[in-house]
Simulated assay, not measured.
Amino acid sequence: MIKVDNVSKRFGDVNAVDGVSFEVPEEETLILLGTSGCGKTTTLKMINRLIEPTSGSIYIDGKNIMEQQPEALRRGIGYVLQNNGLFPHYTVAENIAVVPNLLKWDKQKTEKRIAELMEKLHLDATYLKAYPNELSGGQQQRIGLARALVSDPPVLLMDEPFGALDNVTRSKIHAEFKALDELKRKTIIMVTHDVQEAFELGDRICLMDKGRIIQSGTPADLLFNPVNDFVKEFLKEQRLLLELKTITVKSLWHLLPSNEEIKGSGSGILVGSKSDLWVTLERATILKPHHLHIIDIEDKEAKTVSFESLMSAFYQYKKESGHE
């Protein structure tokens, strides 16, 4: 859906983006991750021509973006900013209706679509007459997302969309983001400097530094097959948490005992094989089960293991991967 081919951007003597190339298949979420000044936002803005590239080519759905009018190009792309970019003198309804009005939708169609998105984003219809400064940060961010989604564009660009939110609100919106059916049909490129956010929301990650892509791959690729010391150091501080959120119970299946004898008695909990270890540990902390019933629906298998066996398999997995 999106192809960035050897794209560079110079500002005077500064190479802000230096020969960047990547492809994003349809309905994939790609995260551009890195520290401030690494070139990720400049890369994003070149995709909808808010910044013109110095060299290289960018294609969306097989069409060169430089052969299209910028205004027409942007109407087919959803764009979400960190500070939500809402017009302060417009009501919520007027903010969401900006693109439908440019596309000359009739009033009934616009109102129906806005009502649909308000419901999906858990926003009460009474907010439609409110102004942005009357809303919380989380509500404003949801309105910004609604405005980007209203015309149902195939591509969504997001520049630090949750960066201004507090941790509790951000965590809640992350969960909504992953569950929202509207986003499962989109090809998404998101910029963030938040490592946990990148690992939680991205199908693939491009880790950038000094205008270049250092490594591109799945979260597991970056964790367990880092290409150099920069990648290792970038993830070092949060490594254990990232491992727990990246490794699924299914990944450990071959390391879990098939017929473990569980000593003592007590209640157990059901765990899906697709659950990551972080979610499993959270449930175990709250429910304090005596054992875990792990179900693999796809392969129609089941195992009953102790918590100790699960953690032992986790450390064995790390050892096999060379990251004990």
Rank of each mutant, 00 (worst) to 15 (best):
K63V: 12
L207P: 02
T280A: 11
A130D: 10
I214D: 08
I47E: 05
L310N: 09
I286A: 09
F162I: 05
E320W: 00
K107Y: 01
S216Q: 14
F230M: 01
P88G: 07
D166V: 06
P53C: 10
I60K: 11
L292C: 02
E261C: 01
N64A: 09
K184L: 02
A97P: 02
K186W: 10
L117S: 13
R113F: 07
E197V: 09
G78D: 08
P257E: 08
H174Y: 04
I294V: 14
F87N: 08
F11S: 03
H193L: 08
G266R: 07
S36H: 05
E261I: 14
V249D: 06
F22Y: 14
D181Y: 00
K112H: 08
R75A: 00
Q82Y: 07
Q140K: 15
I188N: 11
G39H: 04
S273T: 11
H323I: 08
L252N: 10
A130T: 12
T110P: 01
E301Q: 15
G137L: 12
G37T: 09
L241E: 14
T41D: 03
E320Q: 13
W105T: 04
P25G: 07
P219G: 05
S136P: 00
R170L: 03
G34S: 12
C206R: 00
Y90C: 01
V249I: 15
L149I: 04
K186S: 06
V24T: 03
A115D: 14
V168L: 14
A284M: 14
P219K: 01
P154L: 02
P154E: 14
V195K: 14
G211F: 11
Y127Q: 02
N259Y: 05
M158L: 14
F162S: 08
L252T: 13
I143L: 07
F224H: 03
K236Y: 05
F199D: 06
T41F: 03
K274F: 10
K40I: 06
R113T: 12
L281I: 11
E237C: 00
E260F: 10
M208P: 07
I143A: 01
T304W: 04
L157G: 08
G78S: 02
R75K: 12
N83I: 03
K303I: 04
M311K: 11
L30N: 00
I31V: 15
Q238G: 12
P289V: 07
L201T: 05
I114T: 00
P226T: 08
